[in-house]
Write a protein that binds this DNA or RNA. Structure first.
Lengths: 165, 165
DNA sequence: TACAGATATTTCAAACTCAAAATATTTATG
DNA sequence: CATAAATATTTTGAGTTTGAAATATCTGTA
């Protein structure tokens, strides 16, 4: 545990917790609240406007950024979900013709997943609409606050960092 | 859509999106990333240390704050999840002896859910440990940044506000 | 080459989640 | 009072999610 803050250094053999600890807990609960609220709004819009879901969109977004495709394990670590989870979502996207599985040369355990032309076209359109939704949901967020928010959240996500950001 | 920011007022008959819009999208993706990461960490700790889950903890936390109990509909709106979802979690917590359903006087449609003495005891212990986990995961977050984070996130969650915060 | 361990993915069971439909009950209106 | 509308909750079906086990394949070492 990082003990750089004076609040954390006092004697606490009892169960009392510090003000700082409580402030951090409040901050986490607020992150959770915003995250759930925005996710809920986006999920509903995806369903009504696109007849699709958030997990499908997330997978396609990752593949759109990596035009050469990604392995299943790359996908699951990029999205921070389990391997088994990605399998199911990919299965359904393949059935929908949005993506394809391509065997990997020299490694028959792995396969690479990539967008089909249809998938690319669909995603490109939807990504613009999606960005508009987010911008509207965040319309009270100024450029300065957006930067501050990103900076603060990065300090958190860099703590106990997995390989890279 | 809130059109108070100059960036949003320019002509954009084409699909180009503003820098501010992109900054907000980045901010949202960072919120999502931190939220997933912290949730994953907490879920694992809950499982290993408590043999329990995050949704169960959330329900018990809500009930701990409302000692007189809550209706199912109050629970689902407090946790921002669907009614049907709460039913399943409550069923399992009842089976575990952590909570009970109490009929509501004069309204046989509704029932009130409240912690049992065992549930209260269990939650009280776990809440302290949980706060410690969060504080450690957020240990790079200063008091100032915690306050800034809460303030910024509140401006977002107040946008298109449901009844209260 | 044989084979132990590592790696990539899928399968599996249980839990979570949603939205819509179904059920039960209460309230309001004629 | 009758009953339509509203409310509270559960049920249902599909999809998502996890963690563990199973499967298939690859790699390094003897």
């Amino acid at each position: 545990m990082n003990m750089t803050n004076p609040e954390d250094l006092r004697n606490d053999a009892d169960n009392e917790t510090s003000d700082l600890s409580k402030a951090r807990l409040r901050a986490w609960l607020q992150v959770l609240k915003v995250s759930r609220k925005i996710e809920g709004e986006l999920r509903e819009k995806m369903r009504l406007e696109f007849g699709s879901t958030l997990p499908r969109f997330d997978v396609m977004a990752a593949l759109y950024r990596s035009r050469d495709g990604m392995r299943m394990s790359e996908l699951s670590s990029a999205l921070m979900v389990s391997n088994g989870n990605v399998t199911g979502i990919v299965d359904r996207l393949v059935a929908d013709g949005m993506i394809v599985r391509v065997p990997v040369e020299n490694d028959r355990r792995a396969s690479i997943v990539r967008l089909t032309p249809d998938g690319e076209k669909d995603f490109a359109e939807r990504a613009l609409v999606h960005e508009g939704w987010v911008s509207e949901l965040f319309s009270d967020l100024s450029a300065n606050d957006a930067d501050a928010l990103i900076r603060i959240l990065r300090t958190i996500s860099h703590h106990n960092e997995a390989p890279h950001d």
